[in-house]
Design a protein around this nucleic acid. Structure first.
Lengths: 216, 216
DNA sequence: GTCTATAGTCTGATAGAC
DNA sequence: GTCTATCAGACTATAGAC
């Protein structure tokens, strides 16, 4: 111990990402200094620049890696069956993926504004791709008549906000297990969009006059 | 014009709050300097300290004023009638109040971590009071049999996340008017919690074993 | 790959003139 | 109530020794 110098590639690199993620999530990107990160990693500030071009690249890499892992995990998930079955599978996938990653989820929403314009566009495109996967399920269910909803795009954004919001309050040591929370939310999501005999009077898609224009 | 000195109480004071809110929301509390705020207000940095004890008091005052105005506005809203009517009124109120205040809503979620512990407790208590108003409506609807849901507390937090999420994507110049968005969300909220003849098999409140313990 | 040292700039907050 | 001037420290990023 007490080694003050030497080569640690393969150890320091991942540790920089880990520490930066934790500190950014706790205090905010702008509030965390490169010296703080270096101190927790166990090196001097200058050494960080062997692993990142600058502070903002550190943030971008964290967000990009998160979004790409999300996409890969969804690809690997089993989202077959009828639209209601797909919706339940998506709901459970979203909760299961996001709940253990509360730090980076918080970062993904809070620190987009600290990305450069080009980097922002890249992250936003990845997010849009994920949203589109849910929207496709909702549209399929409209076609089959399983779902009744006024606007697939807005409903998509609403459901994702509903589900992602869990990460803001969930306490692993709290009253409910993650599985119990997932049950509550599966119910909410399913009932929010399911066509039922009690509510036939409203048109399914009142505001779809420009549904593919890109804007929400 | 070109006046460099003089007394402007009653003008500068509110302007400091305005500018601070806008800059904090745009760039984050930690990323905004007192000099930046002063420059946009049109004074020198030192003059700000006539209006705030320090930078953090500026943030706390913004959040406290917002939460107290929210409470007063809800008190003034017409939330009578059956639980379903109350729920629709709450939904419309929440959207109407939050949509024109996107900056401070964003601040209220993102910058809680930059409050001192005492200040955090005060803001959290105000928020909890607001959440409890919705939870009371849900519990009333469970009693009357109008609503069916598994957990009033979790459902409350879910619905608030759903509704508040609108502020993250809504574009006043976009495809939908605020009134149209409100219709979509009224539908989602109502259907998510309404007891219907199609879904009688699930218990209304499976996880309520500790519903008043304080933790979600 | 990590160290030390440093350049150049910005920070929150205060003091005292007017 | 606002100004100017200033303190003491922190910041990102780089240079060069090892």
């Amino acid at each position: 111990m007490a080694r003050k110098q030497g080569s640690h590639a393969g150890i320091t690199g991942p540790k920089v990402q880990e520490v930066a993620l934790r500190l950014f999530a706790q205090a905010g990107f702008a509030a965390v200094s490169m010296r703080q990160i270096a101190a927790e990693v166990g090196v001097q500030a200058g050494a960080l620049y062997n692993y990142t071009a600058d502070k903002q690249a550190l943030l971008f890499d964290l967000l990009r890696d998160h979004m790409m892992e999300l996409g890969r995990a969804l690809d690997a998930a089993d989202l077959r069956g009828t639209p209601p079955a797909q919706l339940e599978a998506f709901t459970r996938f979203h909760i299961a993926f996001h709940l253990p990653r509360r730090d980076v989820v918080f970062l993904s929403y809070m620190e987009l504004r600290n990305l450069s314009p080009e980097n922002y566009v890249r992250i936003a495109a990845l997010r849009r791709g994920y949203e589109d996967r849910l929207e496709a399920i909702l549209r399929a269910g409209l076609q089959t008549g399983d779902f009744a909803l006024r606007d697939p795009r807005v409903t998509t954004l609403g459901l994702i906000a509903l589900l992602t919001g869990i990460t803001n309050w969930y306490d692993p040591g709290g009253r409910l297990t993650a599985a119990e929370v997932a049950e509550v939310y599966c119910d909410l999501v399913r009932r929010a969009v399911t066509a039922g005999p009690d509510l036939p009077e409203r048109p399914a898609e009142t505001f779809a006059r420009d549904a593919h224009a890109g804007k929400a």
